[in-house]
Write a protein that binds this DNA or RNA. Structure first.
Lengths: 168, 168
DNA sequence: ACAAACTTTCAATATATTTTGAAAGTTTAA
DNA sequence: TTAAACTTTCAAAATATATTGAAAGTTTGT
């Protein structure tokens, strides 16, 4: 397989995986493109590479920046904005975990905390089942949250070291 | 808050979380409904509870069964099929991890394995960047895969015990 | 064999999400 | 100030995804 074809495959695979995990396909593809490109690209470059419109490219890049996955670069003497992706896999995972925790896990945890408080007759199966499910899920969410928090603070080597030792 | 309202909130929250993670909203809602319901329900019950069509209820229940989250129950002397959800949170997490690994992680890993093999001139920045990103992501995917595999084999107590000790 | 009681299918429809592109907005240099 | 070079916006259009519901299929009891 030649490099251009390989890049293409990577971009497609990353886009598909993203869309299966609730991340816009185009966003994942732009990210993939920047991951396999050594130098920073302009909006124009990206539009052309992926055959997408200017508006789409612009919004997608802003999204990627809000996720902390892509940054702007300014070249001396040029007015155009260049974009590049952090290529450290650990940083990417950490950043995605951080954002999803904030955007999705936290709101759900807030609701679960309220639902756990709902009072009722523990002899009533309707109530007992509700309470048990909600309490259990809340516990699991708290565990996931705690794990993520630790992961976010952790240094790369420490984390991978632990994972490797733990699951050898 | 009263029980019916609380159930409603739970179903909505679960549906929203599901849709953010690439799981059909209705599927997550049916699952939520079954999680907070002590007894098994018929298609009819579910259609009415969630105001969805027969076709939708049927397909969603099949999906949930294919994910191993819901099972059929037959009541003596009745022809109707009843459905109920496994309410063990750990089993749910394990089952979801198992399916997503099979459906999404494995296909991507297969592609990554091929892309890692692509040869090129390591002096060429285009190639070097591509190769580094793909290799790193492949390593991370392998780690995730290994971790999931262990998790899937693990008993509840062992796993939670480890997590707690590790991230105390 | 029949028909009642169910379940499944799938083309049509509805809904939600993504993308476009041209106009409006902004910045910079002369 | 002006205009060229660039970025942003957003209503409309395109696309993708989910839902409906009635017809077809299946199973069971008589």
């Amino acid at each position: 397989m030649e490099l251009p074809e390989a890049k293409q495959k990577f971009i497609e695979a990353w886009g598909k995986l993203g869309s299966e995990w609730g991340i816009n396909r185009t966003m994942a593809q732009v990210h993939a493109l920047l991951l396999v490109t050594p130098d920073a690209l302009t909006t124009e470059d990206i539009m052309e590479s992926l055959s997408i419109s200017r508006g789409n490219a612009n919004m997608t890049l802003r999204d990627l920046m809000s996720w902390g996955l892509v940054e702007k670069q300014h070249k001396a003497g040029e007015r155009k904005e260049y974009f590049f992706a952090d290529k450290n896999t650990w940083n990417i995972a950490r950043q995605v975990a951080k954002e999803r925790r904030k955007r999705e896990l936290e709101p759900v945890m807030k609701i679960l905390d309220e639902l756990v408080k709902v009072k009722g007759d523990s002899k009533d199966p309707e109530y007992a089942t509700f309470n048990k499910s909600v309490t259990d899920i809340n516990k699991m969410a708290k565990n996931v949250d705690r794990t993520l928090e630790t992961m976010l603070k952790a240094e790369e080597s420490w984390f991978w070291g632990s994972i490797f030792k733990m699951f050898k």
